[in-house]
Design a protein around this nucleic acid. Structure first.
Lengths: 343, 343
DNA sequence: GCGGAAACTGGGAGCGCTTCCGGTCGAAGA
DNA sequence: TCTTCGACCGGAAGCGCTCCCAGTTTCCGC
């Protein structure tokens, strides 16, 4: 209990009357140590309150003992939403079982980008979970050929990473669009997300597919940018170009909120004149007027599965990419009399 | 560019034709190295793509090169909201300027708690930012007498940490209550937060103070739990016990949303019969019916200032605690005709 | 030119841990 | 009883870096 000098493995060994090697073996519960000595060491660890020095261990084993969750995006505000926090909760839930630490990098400035690059090049972490928000991120390519294990969260556009977990954006969009068809709508428009993001293109594709199956026109399209204001502008444009529309699938709840406002200002009733479906199931979606039917994706699971995948990767196995199911959450923006949830 | 063996300081030194010590001095730009050698080393670093090994450096300097943001709470879902993510953005914005890494610990399970304790005892980080959500957290005391620098985010109840940054919860609550008085309300109730959290007690105190100044009755009180459902229940109870109330200050937007719902179900108009003010200015507050007047606190700044304070602490200086201002955001739940924002 | 301070330089000892490797010892098989 | 083979053990060599220290310049001012 010497307050100044931290207790080292040597101290433990000395007190237990064994060699440092033996003590080390006990700590890492490696074989080849008798029960007697093992107990002695364990007791000494207890008595002294020994905790291994992570840096020293890292140096000796060439393993850092930490993984990083890296978010690469231009705008730091992207992280401010609840999305990111939930991912962390999911990641932590699995890391907690191991003794890996979690480092978080928001690679938004040039400085951050550089650091992320170095990380990838020089193995300063045992693994990386990478969520790359925008399109042609050079980091993505770099990550793919790095020799530190990398799993992607979501897929960048035009790029299929080797290991990733993603939400089923396309399937979700299909679900949303099919729902609109199911409630009798036929002139279904869409406000897409940014087309330089994977989620944007995937959701657009899902919309197209669903309408193709039904033989309906998928031409009522305006591209949005995932923001509330952008959603409003897009809705206005949609209304101008396709005044006959009776439903709109909006690729994010944020945009849907903007759209709802414009719809209201235009004197359209929701869902009477126009039914609206969003995407993401953000907290606010339950409180809009009317409450927003939307597609919910399991964000926490996404974090969870990313971490799990990274772990299997570091253990030398080869995981398969994973696509997490999304589901329709039915609220009043599509059916005034809310009924049971469809799966 | 040898792909297998990572390049070390020795490699750099050898290539630059200097000693390892000299190379080290250049890397850490310490004095006592001639311009010629300095340039040679720098060139070698460039050529070889050298990046110092963090573990080795940590071991040698006895400095980890990382700080941790630790959240101690019972329920992991506490972190899922946008609050936490914003703090991280703030923290990162200052850490980015240094070369400290950020580690995140969600100490929710017993395992996590233990790890946090060890961290505090054995200096596995250069500093910690601690946000302790619930009341009598033993971690808080432990942190205070740890010899690793700790700054608190928010203040636990019954406990004034040496170094902290907190939002002005009391001042905000006073602002909210004064606003209610200013618009002519006299029978002002409150739904408090959890009284085992610092924010809960502080906001309650602010409410009391404001009414005391005006000589109004501060007895219309029901304790809530910061959840939406809890807010609803509390509102119902308030209505039952004090049917004459004409305004309510609700200690969180979540609860206010629940309260709004109950008010509506009870046939009360807002703000006609009852004016409502919330706290936090969550995203949803802009979209409730009616939109919610609330107190906004600068969460990102909170992260920013915590990190800054930690930095000054590690540099050996002694910072003063910091209380960040909150402000009133006026919306339709208190004034049907929305006017300018008060400061 | 000379003394001495000041600026440089590289050797080497660690930081605390893991891990290879050769050695010991007890017991099982002959 | 004598080998043989494990299991067990401790010495020692690092992992890559920093930093002290003693030695070697260099460069003034006289």
């Amino acid at each position: 209990m010497n307050p100044r000098r931290p207790v080292t493995l040597d101290d433990v060994a000395r007190r237990a009357g064994v060699s440092r090697s033996a003590a080390s073996r006990v700590i890492n519960n490696a074989p080849h140590v008798s029960k007697a000595k093992r107990d002695a060491v364990l007791r000494a660890v207890q008595d002294l309150g020994y905790v291994p020095n992570a840096s020293a261990r890292a140096l000796a084993t060439n393993q850092v003992g930490a993984v990083v969750l890296a978010l690469s995006a231009e705008d730091p505000q992207v992280f401010a939403g609840p999305f990111f926090a939930e991912v962390i909760v999911g990641v932590t839930s699995v890391l907690e079982e191991t003794d890996l630490e979690l480092m978080v990098m928001l690679a938004t400035s040039a400085r951050g980008q550089t650091r992320l690059e170095q990380l990838l090049r020089t193995r300063q972490a045992d693994g990386v979970m990478l969520m790359s928000m925008h399109g042609d991120d050079p980091i993505a390519r770099l990550a793919e050929q790095s020799d530190v294990p990398v799993v992607f969260g979501g897929r960048p556009v035009n790029f299929e990473p080797r290991y990733y977990v993603d939400a089923d954006n396309r399937g979700g969009a299909r679900l949303a669009t099919e729902h609109l068809v199911a409630i009798g709508r036929r002139r279904i428009a869409t406000i897409t997300g940014r087309m330089d993001e994977g989620a944007g293109t995937a959701r657009y594709k899902g919309y197209q597919e669903a309408l193709a199956v039904e033989g309906l026109d998928a031409g009522r399209v305006v591209h949005g940018d995932f923001t509330e204001d952008g959603g409003g502008r897009a809705m206005a444009e949609l209304l101008a170009r396709h005044p006959d529309l009776d439903a709109v699938f909006v690729a994010s709840d944020q945009m849907a909120i903007g759209a709802l406002r414009v719809l209201k200002d235009a004197g359209k009733s929701v869902p009477g004149d126009v039914a609206v479906v969003g995407f993401n199931d953000i907290a606010t979606a339950r409180h809009t007027a009317p409450p927003l039917t939307t597609i919910s994706q399991p964000i926490q699971s996404l974090g969870h599965e990313m971490a799990r995948m990274l772990l299997t990767l570091t253990s030398g196995e080869t995981p398969s990419p994973l696509i997490l199911p999304t589901r329709l959450v039915q609220r009043a923006s599509t059916t005034s009399t809310v009924t049971a949830c469809s799966a």
